[in-house]
């Protein structure tokens, strides 16, 4: 089995985290990450970084901004001959 270096591990880190790798390479990387404390911390904290970002729900669009958008859309729809737009209540 090929022994993965830290540099190689770093190059494959994205795919390792995104689960898009061929099983053999994944196995080699897993072996490296389990034996190399530095790469283990690197991988673990990168994974947590992504998790914390993905955990953030987008905040509501400010009502005034949404009202401006809906008004502009309504105007456009009227021009196109559509029925009136229902006010979005996000």
């Amino acid at each position: 089995m090929h022994l993965v270096t830290c540099k190689e591990f770093l190059q494959e880190l994205n795919d390792f985290l995104d689960e898009g790798l061929d099983p053999k390479l994944r196995q080699e990387l897993e072996r490296h990450v389990n034996e190399c404390p530095n790469c283990w911390v690197l991988c673990n904290t990168t994974e947590k970084t992504l998790k914390v970002f993905k955990g953030m729900e987008p905040q509501k669009v400010p009502p005034a901004v949404e009202a401006r958008l809906m008004a502009a859309l309504e105007k456009k729809m009227r021009a196109k001959g559509c029925a009136t737009v229902k006010k979005a209540d996000a």
Binding site: P58, V61, A83, A90
Partner: peptide, 20 residues
Amino acid sequence: AGDADAFSELVTQYDRRVFR
């Protein structure tokens, strides 16, 4: 097909993500 309510529903669904 021209249903304005359907489009505004799409807006409501995605506006916060587009804004973010």
